[in-house]
Simulated assay, not measured.
Amino acid sequence: MFSGDQDSVVPLLGSRSLVREMAQDLEFNISVPYGPWFHKGQVGGWVTEYGNLLTFATVRGASHLVPYAQPSRALRMFTSFIRGARLPNDTHPSISGGDSPI
């Protein structure tokens, strides 16, 4: 699940609380604490992982229509999802080459 951090339609704090409550109901523990993810050397947003099935990510500078407001960051987030990969948590590209800097 994701949210733009400037979304006035569905506010970030409401989305984050909903996901946290859902994780508690499903008995998923936090596996990756709330922290930044990066895109093109900048903070792309913030992310928390619950178990290995639920991730909540924010997109920095995005409003309700994330792909319209932040297309590059939205594409990076979507690409990570499709690949089954975590959002990058540092500014260094992967040595293996499997994590392209989209």
Score class of each variant (00 low, 15 high):
R16A: 12
S8C: 11
S15C: 15
S3R: 01
S80G: 08
Q42C: 10
V10R: 09
G35M: 11
N89H: 08
N89G: 03
F78S: 13
Q24E: 10
S72V: 07
V9T: 13
V32S: 03
Q70T: 13
G61K: 12
L26K: 00
F56S: 04
S94E: 11
E27P: 01
Q70F: 09
Y68A: 10
R86Y: 00
P88K: 03
F56T: 06
T91D: 01
D7F: 11
G61R: 07
H64Q: 13
S80C: 12
L54Y: 05
S63V: 09
S8I: 14
Y68F: 13
Y34D: 09
D25V: 10
V59L: 11
S96V: 05
V32P: 00
R83Q: 05
R86W: 01
P36N: 14
M1N: 04
E27Q: 07
I102W: 00
V32W: 01
E27D: 15
A62K: 15
R60P: 01
Q24N: 07
P33A: 10
G14C: 13
S63L: 14
M1W: 02
A62V: 15
M22H: 09
G98Q: 08
V32A: 03
P93H: 09
F28R: 04
P93E: 12
L54F: 02
D5Y: 02
V10N: 14
P11D: 15
Y50R: 00
D5Q: 12
L87F: 00
V43T: 13
H64A: 13
G84N: 00
A74L: 07
